[in-house]
Design a protein around this nucleic acid. Sequence first.
DNA 1: TATGAATGAGGATTCATTCAT
DNA 2: GATGAATGAATCCTCATTCAT
Lengths: 199, 199, 199, 199
Amino acid sequence: MSTTNTGPGAQSRHVTAILDAATRRFAQTGYHGTSMRDIGAEMGMHAGSLYVHIRSKEDLLDAIVWDIAQSTERRMEAVLAAGDTPVDKLRTIAEEHLRWVAANPDAATVYFHEWRHLKGERLERVKAARARWTRGLRDIIQAGIDEGAFKPMDVRLAGLAFVGMLNSTYRWLRPDGDLDTAEIAGTFMDFLLHGWAAG
Amino acid sequence: MSTTNTGPGAQSRHVTAILDAATRRFAQTGYHGTSMRDIGAEMGMHAGSLYVHIRSKEDLLDAIVWDIAQSTERRMEAVLAAGDTPVDKLRTIAEEHLRWVAANPDAATVYFHEWRHLKGERLERVKAARARWTRGLRDIIQAGIDEGAFKPMDVRLAGLAFVGMLNSTYRWLRPDGDLDTAEIAGTFMDFLLHGWAAG
Amino acid sequence: MSTTNTGPGAQSRHVTAILDAATRRFAQTGYHGTSMRDIGAEMGMHAGSLYVHIRSKEDLLDAIVWDIAQSTERRMEAVLAAGDTPVDKLRTIAEEHLRWVAANPDAATVYFHEWRHLKGERLERVKAARARWTRGLRDIIQAGIDEGAFKPMDVRLAGLAFVGMLNSTYRWLRPDGDLDTAEIAGTFMDFLLHGWAAG
Amino acid sequence: MSTTNTGPGAQSRHVTAILDAATRRFAQTGYHGTSMRDIGAEMGMHAGSLYVHIRSKEDLLDAIVWDIAQSTERRMEAVLAAGDTPVDKLRTIAEEHLRWVAANPDAATVYFHEWRHLKGERLERVKAARARWTRGLRDIIQAGIDEGAFKPMDVRLAGLAFVGMLNSTYRWLRPDGDLDTAEIAGTFMDFLLHGWAAG
DNA sequence: TATGAATGAGGATTCATTCAT
DNA sequence: GATGAATGAATCCTCATTCAT
């Protein structure tokens, strides 16, 4: 996976390589559709050899997903703490989001698609992190309404619309596309703020 | 799966029951995370007994997905043929879409999540159908621009925004929700047409 | 395994056959030295096919060991309840024990050798049953001392000597031996009661 | 393992430490239930590092078992050569045996439990040594009968009773027990010579 | 001397599927 | 129509062992 990781979660080069390979395969064939042999083959390695470096297949999914969940949450906290307007906050989120998706389409696919194959406590942890992120988003939107930047509207639906638009980009946004991500984010924000209607 | 099917694709009551069970399980644990035994258990039947009625597991996924793809496409054709404005066409699509998602959340999950586990020709067939649907959507948006209802904009991005907002509803829209689907569709259309900005 | 089983633990013919095969192999190569493939081969079956009838390898060991533990305990209860002298009680135990070992040398080997590879609650259950049996034995010996049939002695050591002599027979006692089991049991009881010393 | 070894089989301090670790683990989880990693962990070492000092896992079992088999046989030879009575010979054997078991319960467990997992020639070698030991024991008993110390009896059964009583002590005899080993050996010899019967 | 990494075989178990009954 | 039994391949993972460093 490509999110920078030099903090406490820093891993050996080997583990990083395995996580990268796993991310690619999970993105392509899904968690349950990917075998450890597939991941090994991606690295020119036997399936069993992977276990020199990792403990289980689910550990891989968890490492990939949880790492993203955490940095996503940290970004939200930073945005919330920043001293700008709700509109600018949303713009920042959209831009960063699309930039990250374009740079890490496989990781994004795993994060949005495969996280639910986690089990037990790990699943709950990720769900909780996502819920906190969503709450942050709603707070921003609510602030926008409160200060008169947005018209009165259902915050929950507004948040879901925003998330739906942004998160679905992992299905088509690729780093080599013709439009740059800032441009796309700008267009999406324009749709959301002013709509399609002429005049 | 619950879309009515009395046309050429009509199936025995047994097959329908199996498809329903498979839809539920595929939605919950994914195609590769679901075993034939799981599906059998869902019906109080042994895994092997399923093969009296069906030919393979992939047949199940294909039947579920292809049936939805086809009716989705037929609806698009009907909408395109109707004599109303682009805005009304989009409104119709949104309303029908959300109504169907709310009524068939499992089928929707399979359709949006699991279709990519199809292989070969079946996968291509579904991709093609989705592409045709997307093209129809873009045609409507383009018509809206052409006749001055929408401001000039990137049709592709507009389509992706629309689809992203609509398709992501399968993650949270449930039949027993407090808001009715027409209301939600209306709100979403309002977001898209006029945006959030006050004034 | 060969102990008759028509009570609540009665199993399908298939399971019985698997348990017999497992008993033979566990006795010969030990629990951990026996693979499911070995057991399958013993039955002309593939390893995976065993799982049509059983749930796990440890289930096999548990079924074998627990069944013996239970019938052993039931026999002890019957002996304790019988209205004869301590000496006769011990004689009965020795005779039945040797008869059973000779008839079921593999089951005996598993029972005395492999039971400790059980884990968790299953291990505890078996330990507890063995402890109850040992307590029964000591009670008999103590009764013998109390009523003056035996000289005063360390009951614990006496019990361990008895058990050591009896239980070790699984190493050499075979159904086709030249001495019959009643004779051997008689000799052992004579050793224990009167010793080797001449005069 | 803890039997002193300064003769031809003398090993490097490392090998001795590995043998000790292996003895402990083999005693606890059995030969096949113990992995090289387990043994390494017991020494704070990686599994692969063991191979700097040893050649194979089976070598470990063989070294442990064969070393005991040899010193056991040497002791038997010494006892046979001594100029005392059969009764005293047996008493010596019992005392030494129990003292060694109490001091080396793990080694004893491996010797009595795990030796049969040896293969081929190594297995035969150990079997032969045990057979020679057993023959020595019978010779002593036979001598006791011949000189009138013991009553006429089946020498084979007498030997098996003696061995059964002695060898089973590895299951319960621990160095920290309340009874000292000489006392226990004395009690066992008293059981064997004079029996339990009062008067 | 010890490590970290790798291997290839094999461990228990589950899989989709078949077929006689 | 459904079952119980079986298959053979594949699942995740552990094994004893090797070897460059």
